Simulated scan of single mutants.
Amino acid sequence: MDINQQKEQFSNTYLQAVATVAGYSLYKPSVDDNSIDLGIAAKGETGRIRAPRLELQLKSTSRDILKDKLIRYPLILKNYNNLRMTDIAIPRILIVVLIPDNLANWLKQSEEELCLRHCGY
């Protein structure tokens, strides 16, 4: 597996862990033709809206994307345009997972904890 595939898998795992602890489920569209990598869904009985969903474009980087309290991530125009559509049934967001430069620092594990480093924005 090359480093980009590792980053993608790490990002998927990070998001799966966060969604699981929050009580949500993830789903993967069978074809990615709308720049949607994953979807997140809640149970049908929760909240005001039944079975809410959110579609996600997932990116990962070890670049410094935090500048002046803003997140700056370069995105190709097609992906940007797919995210900003307003005439869609399910809202879409971009999640950028920040990963350490050194692969050895991505994950720390012991008998007492599992630490995935850094975080998603």
Rank of each mutant, 00 (worst) to 15 (best):
G23V: 15
G23R: 13
G23N: 04
G23K: 08
Y24C: 11
S25D: 13
S25Q: 14
S25H: 12
L26N: 03
Y27V: 00
Y27Q: 04
Y27I: 02
Y27M: 01
K28I: 07
P29L: 05
P29Y: 01
P29N: 07
P29A: 00
P29R: 01
P29V: 02
S30E: 08
V31G: 03
D32W: 04
D32M: 01
D32T: 06
D33N: 10
D33V: 13
D33I: 15
N34I: 00
N34V: 01
N34C: 08
N34D: 06
S35G: 04
S35V: 06
S35E: 04
S35A: 04
I36P: 05
I36T: 01
I36F: 01
I36Y: 02
D37R: 00
D37M: 00
L38I: 07
L38D: 02
G39F: 01
G39Y: 02
G39A: 04
I40V: 08
I40W: 06
A41Q: 03
A41W: 10
A41P: 09
A42P: 10
K43V: 15
K43I: 14
K43R: 15
K43C: 15
K43E: 13
G44S: 14
G44E: 14
E45C: 15
E45V: 15
T46S: 15
T46A: 15
T46W: 14
T46M: 14
T46P: 15
T46E: 12
G47T: 10
G47R: 00
R48W: 09
R48P: 12
I49T: 11
R50P: 11
A51M: 12
A51Q: 12
P52H: 06
P52I: 00
R53E: 10
L54T: 04
L54A: 10
L54V: 11
E55W: 08
E55C: 07
L56H: 04
L56W: 05
L56D: 00
L56R: 00
Q57M: 14
Q57E: 12
Q57P: 11
Q57L: 11
L58A: 06
L58T: 02
L58V: 03
L58N: 00
L58P: 05
S60Q: 02
S60T: 05
S60N: 03
T61G: 07
T61Y: 05
S62W: 11
S62K: 10
S62R: 04
R63S: 13
R63W: 12
R63I: 14
D64S: 10
I65V: 11
I65P: 03
I65S: 03
L66C: 10
K67L: 13
D68W: 06
K69V: 13
K69A: 06
K69S: 02
K69R: 07
L70V: 09
L70H: 12
I71H: 01
I71Q: 02
I71Y: 03
R72K: 09
R72M: 09
R72A: 11
Y73M: 05
Y73F: 09
Y73K: 05
P74N: 11
L75P: 00
L75H: 05
L75A: 02
L75F: 04
L75R: 04
